[in-house]
Design a protein around this nucleic acid. Structure first.
Lengths: 244, 244
DNA sequence: TTGTTTAATTGATCTAAATCAATATAACCG
DNA sequence: CGGTTATATTGATTTAGATCAATTAAACAA
């Protein structure tokens, strides 16, 4: 993977919120950036607990997270809820709506957040004239598929502690990419949401946290996690290349 | 979803194996079909047990399955193996190689099979001039992501019997789409492979089969499955919209 | 055909995680 | 601020599915 950035990455220096603040790690020239700018909408604010989109949302729109944190989840009629992913600043959201007319899951803000909307049709249109953009977009979709396969591996063959270790390392890496500390971070989601994502019950997640803490691999203070030994934590998850 | 066909669908009448046999459910005109034909290679045969591609395969190539049956799986150093999917005639394979330079899993033929190779770069190129093709391709990728989320729901919150019911119904639907019987079919994969896919051990899969048979929902004769009551089987899986 | 290997079923036992339950701690609000 | 609700931890018990083990049935090759 040549780049660790998703399609729309905030310029660290930007303060206002027009499209020009967004740049792409695909080597666009100024004119191309301008073209893309025309397509991306101004930011939209979502309050903590609010919905970015519902299962029933019809618009084929992608969202670039400018700031904040989201979960996506499937809610079944029988009450079963499955968290399918967590999404942080700088990442892209909404790839599931392209296949049909509807989103297949809900996207809910776990803290006050800001997103930029990217109408998919328009993105498709301009990417026809900018090959590098199109290519980059395809890589992002493919990466999503690869990621999902990693989670299948996790859900299908790892035990509780391995799953949590894998999850923490994944979060760590993603925080690092965005320029935050990779050893000390706040998890925006609840134990229940982590559990849903990892196919575990919240009590099991809590126990796994405690276990890792007793082994002095991490420090847990409610939602604040500190990783004390990255290497030993990696060993925990069983040298699997999980959660890329 | 307007169409149930994947990007390359065999013309049922075709006997020879050049590109012209392939048609797309995207309303291409003759000239466009010809263009696409130039891109898709002649068929390649894979024997039962053979590899279509390895984890290390470098080429960003998609494969349209002309005939046969494949599994894709991740093989870990520690021996853990996770089947990430089964792929049948008419379906597309290799979407995972686009994100990087390498495939992230192996594709193995479960019976003698034939595929057409589609160099991804070339597909990208011509889809730039054929918007409907590009659109269709994006839908396929998105659908893959949605599918994976369904499997996460399955692995994360369903119990053994529900998983198997869900799996059988998914196979049934896919056979039906390709024009085969939706109530009587041969499963090419072993119990172990089903188990790996569903996050279960082979013994558990076997027991679940027996249980469903005792409840007269299905008939099991080794790899030959007959569904006796589709509706009751759907109830089994707990009204979840799983495995789309 | 017969021997050999591979796959599938079924039973007995064990265990990791679910479930049930009781506090404890943090977040929220009038 | 105190009172209410949401979240987290920890313990006791149960259970679904894993593991171990034995048998049967297919697939395959000489």
């Amino acid at each position: 993977m040549s780049t660790n950035f998703d399609i729309v990455q905030l310029r660290s220096s930007c303060a206002t919120c027009s499209l020009r603040e967004l740049c792409l790690p695909v080597g666009l020239n100024d004119q191309e950036v301008h073209l893309l700018g025309e397509v991306v909408s101004h930011k939209r604010k979502i309050r903590r607990g609010g919905y970015l989109y519902h299962t029933s949302t019809k618009f084929q729109t992608l969202y670039a997270i400018k700031s904040g944190f989201f979960k996506t989840c499937i809610l079944e009629e029988d009450g079963r809820q499955q968290v399918t992913g967590f999404h942080m600043t700088g990442e892209l959201l909404g790839l599931d709506a392209i296949s049909g007319d509807l989103h297949t899951c809900d996207a809910i803000a776990l803290e006050n957040s800001e997103v930029c909307e990217i109408p998919f049709g328009k993105l498709e249109e301009i990417s026809r004239t900018i090959p590098s953009l199109m290519r980059h977009f395809h890589k992002i979709m493919s990466r999503e598929i690869v990621r999902d396969h990693s989670i299948m591996l996790l859900l299908g063959s790892m035990k509780a502690e391995e799953r949590l270790a894998s999850f923490l390392l994944n979060m760590s890496r993603r925080f690092a990419i965005r320029g935050y500390s990779e050893t000390s971070f706040i998890l925006r989601m609840t134990r229940e949401e982590i559990g849903s994502y990892l196919g575990l019950k919240l009590e099991t997640v809590s126990r796994a946290f405690s276990k890792l803490q007793h082994e002095t691999l991490i420090t847990v203070n409610n939602k604040h996690i500190q990783i004390l030994d990255l290497d030993r934590l990696k060993l925990k998850m069983g040298n699997t290349s999980c959660l890329t």
